Simulated assay, not measured.
Amino acid sequence: MLILLFVIVMWYSGLFFQSFFLHRYAAHQTFTMSKTAEKITFVLTWIFQGPSYLSAYGYGIMHRMHHAYTDTDKDPHSPSYDENPFAMMWKTKNIYQDINNDRVEVDAKFKKNVPQWKRFDAFASSRFSRVLWGVLYITFFAVFATAWWQWLFLPVVLAMAPIHGVIINWFGHISGYRNFKTKDTSKNLFRFDFLMMGEGYHNNHHKFGSRPNFGGVRWYEIDVTYLIMRFLHRINLIQMKPIKIDVQRHR
């Protein structure tokens, strides 16, 4: 029972910081925060993503490229140009690492105001850090696993961030429904996004990339991450930009 609880907590906490910090803050800048809060969030992202930690800099730039080149041969991850999810994520990994390690030239428009903490990222992305988290996770399973099948969840927690990426970037362009006609294949995965905390409203997001609320087009589209953001805004930890869009006109 404790193993299942651990997997659930790591799934949603890691997903929250990927959606809140890497996606909505680093890539789209739908809100602002102080430099102190930003550094604290860097550390929290490392804690909750663990061995699959993603840099805000590498993720932010790559995601902006995804929006600029969606479903073209320049898209860092598209089912239209990859044979299967594994091939797509392997290509994504290589592009991410090239960007994060400054091995490729990146257009200045993709780098504008993307947060970067080089010294921390060098540690958090290091082999030492990833192996350390792996050892801690394996130790936790060794102490608390009560049945052999619980060990099947170990690869899930070790590769949590890539799994989140596959769900959105592969299946979010293959299956689901569309509220808007867009020039890409983006789809909303769920009517109520219980699994991805709002990230599953992919078609909505591709239509309105700068909108902090990925849901809200239909009454059942509840974006849990956005609700948390509203609370953080209310207690002054972040400042959300007032963006109003008449979604009815764009259906």
Rank of each mutant, 00 (worst) to 15 (best):
M1F: 11
L4C: 05
V7W: 08
G14R: 07
Q18S: 07
Y25H: 11
F31T: 06
T36D: 01
E38I: 09
K39H: 10
T45K: 09
G50V: 00
Y53R: 02
G58W: 00
I61C: 03
D75T: 01
S78V: 04
E83N: 11
K91T: 06
K91M: 06
K93P: 03
Q97N: 12
N100S: 06
D102C: 07
V104S: 09
V106G: 01
V106Y: 05
D107K: 11
K109G: 07
F110H: 13
K111R: 13
N113C: 10
V114L: 08
P115K: 14
Q116M: 12
F120D: 02
A122N: 15
F123H: 14
F123W: 15
R130M: 05
V131K: 06
V135Y: 15
Y137H: 14
A145N: 12
T146M: 07
T146R: 11
W149H: 08
W151L: 08
L154S: 05
P155L: 11
V156Q: 03
P162K: 10
I163F: 08
I163K: 01
G165W: 02
I167K: 04
I168D: 05
N169Y: 03
F171A: 06
I174Y: 10
G176S: 05
D184C: 15
K187A: 08
N188A: 13
F192S: 09
F194A: 10
F194G: 04
M196L: 13
E199K: 05
F208R: 11
G209W: 10
F214K: 02
D223R: 00
V224Y: 04
L227F: 11
I228G: 00
I235N: 01
I235T: 03
N236K: 13
Q239E: 13
M240K: 04
D246L: 12
R249I: 05
H250V: 07
R251I: 09
